[in-house]
Amino acid sequence: MEQLLQQYQSVTQNKVMHWFNAGNINDFPENGGACVKYKSKQIAVYNFTRKSAWYACQNLCPHKMEMVLSRGMIGDASGIPKVACPLHKKTFSLENGENLNGEDYKIATYPVKIENENVYIGFTD
C-alpha cells in the first residue's frame, strides 16, 4: 500500500524533466476528468473549462487506496478548484493536493500544459 502511494510525489513546473503527451484535448470531457497511464502511474487529468484551466493529480484516492479520482466531480470551494472522490466524497484541492475536509491525507499534483491541442503532463521521471 505504502509503496503504491510513494509513487506519487507532487511535481512543480520548474522541476519538470519530461512533458508527457497524454492525448488530444478532445479526449477529456468538459468540466470533468479522465485517466491517463504513464509508466506504472495512473494520473487523473481534468479539463476545467469553466476556469479555462487544466489540472492533473494522482488517480489513487488516499482514503481507501482506490484508482477512482478521475471519475470524481470537480468544482470549487471558495474559489479553490477541487475534486470530490466518487467513493466517499472526500475533496482535494487541485492546486496543491490538500485535503479540504481537514484530514491528514494529501494527493500529488502535476503541472499540465496545452500545445497545439495536445495535453502534456509534467513528470520528473
Binding site: 470531457p29 468540466n31 477512482v68 466531480m73 466518487p86 467513493l87
Partner: peptide, 19 residues
C-alpha cells in the same frame, strides 16, 4: 450533461468499493 451527474449516474452504474 455528463459531468454534472453524480458519479454513479455519470457511468450509469453503481460504483463499488474497489472502483
Amino acid at each position: 450533461q455528463v459531468t454534472i451527474q453524480d458519479s454513479n449516474d455519470r457511468f450509469l452504474a453503481n460504483i463499488q468499493r474497489n472502483g
